[in-house]
Design a protein around this nucleic acid. Structure first.
Lengths: 194, 194
DNA sequence: TTTGAGTGCAAGTGCTTGCTTGCATATAAA
DNA sequence: TTTATATGCAAGCAAGCACTTGCACTCAAA
């Protein structure tokens, strides 16, 4: 933690880290205080309650996701593009892995996390369909491809691998992102080419 | 619950149902007792502790999964086969959805659930690779297909869609299984055909 | 009828958790 | 120097949770 970080940010960072490793219930206010290096009562001077810390964290995520289109660079070469997007997706989730895991672990308790988390696949799907449409016109994509199905399958591949990565980290089920992009996504994308 | 169900089974069923809807921490022994229609102290006469109920439930799952190969019918027509396997996968998870969700929600707390849950994708991958090998020899599959990548991608598609279904049930992200098999899996499988 | 097994009931234990309260201290600005 | 702000500290509160304990009752088998 940076020496000049505000108390708010210290608490938010500690909360986020603990969410990742201990889950929501395991993220006690006692632990947050220790990790943030503040007194437990300070937490309640800055945030109304424990849930209020989460609300703030989700706000940060939504600010990021609302500009997410700019992060997914698609230039017109389907194979290179989808490999690049897969890597970007991995990076975006890595930056928000606590909330990603919270959505899996506690989605049933906090509808607002699901509302937030679903924005990424929804945005990504819209972008893919738009770009794929252009690529059919330029002849890069096979014109028989069902764009919605292709976009959904791409998202499922990335999402599934990402869940393996974060939800079952020691299971050895996820494909490391380099290999995933170069093999799994590449083979998928090549099948879309005309 | 069947009128002649044993007390053990009543408790296990109640536990499983509550796991699904309330998560592990929300599955209090008080709630289990109510749902099972037994006294709370009876639970501790049948199981050492709360965790012991989970252990028993996982044993039931493992008994199922150890014979899982028989459930995945692969006859040599890649498209029909993968569509059928996708539906079988969906059915298997549906039968064990509480443990599937527990793995996502509480995997970090219970390594034994991860060990159990990972058996399904591991078994399925092995089956797929074996069958795909045969299909290359019969000419059903394009011989340039990387079998491991194809099998992994098939599993990721199914897994991803299943996580959408159970972890974010109201988000509208998952493709209903009929459509998923007929469109997403069918398109995927057709690309593997020689 | 007696005995053993299984269960209900109610009270209780010890611990944890989120949060509150009131006092004290430190620091920066006026 | 005084004032305002931010925070630490320690004690505490109320609720909830897994689990225990001891008594009482029911039912089936011997």
């Amino acid at each position: 933690m940076a020496a000049t970080q505000s108390t708010d940010d210290k608490i938010l960072t500690a909360f986020s880290e603990l969410l990742f490793s201990n889950g929501y219930e395991g993220t006690t206010t006692k632990r947050i205080a220790e990790q943030a290096g503040v007194n437990e009562s300070t937490i309640f001077r800055h945030f109304q309650d424990k849930h209020g810390i989460l609300t703030k964290l989700i706000e940060g995520y939504m600010a990021d996701i609302n500009n997410i289109s700019d992060s997914f660079e698609i230039k017109g070469d389907i194979v290179q593009d989808l490999m690049r997007v897969a890597k970007t997706y991995d990076r975006v989730i890595e930056n928000h892995k606590s909330l990603f895991l919270l959505g899996l672990r506690n989605g049933y308790q906090f509808p607002e996390i699901i509302s937030a988390i679903k924005q990424l696949p929804i945005h990504l799907k819209a972008i893919l369909i738009e770009k794929f449409t252009g690529m059919i016109e330029t002849g890069e994509l096979d014109k028989d491809v069902d764009l919605e199905v292709a976009a959904t399958n791409f998202i499922l591949l990335n999402f599934g691998n990402t869940v393996f990565k974060y939800a079952y980290p020691k299971a050895g089920l996820n494909v490391p992102i380099s290999k995933f992009a170069k093999e799994n996504i590449k083979e998928f994308a090549e099948k879309l080419k005309s």
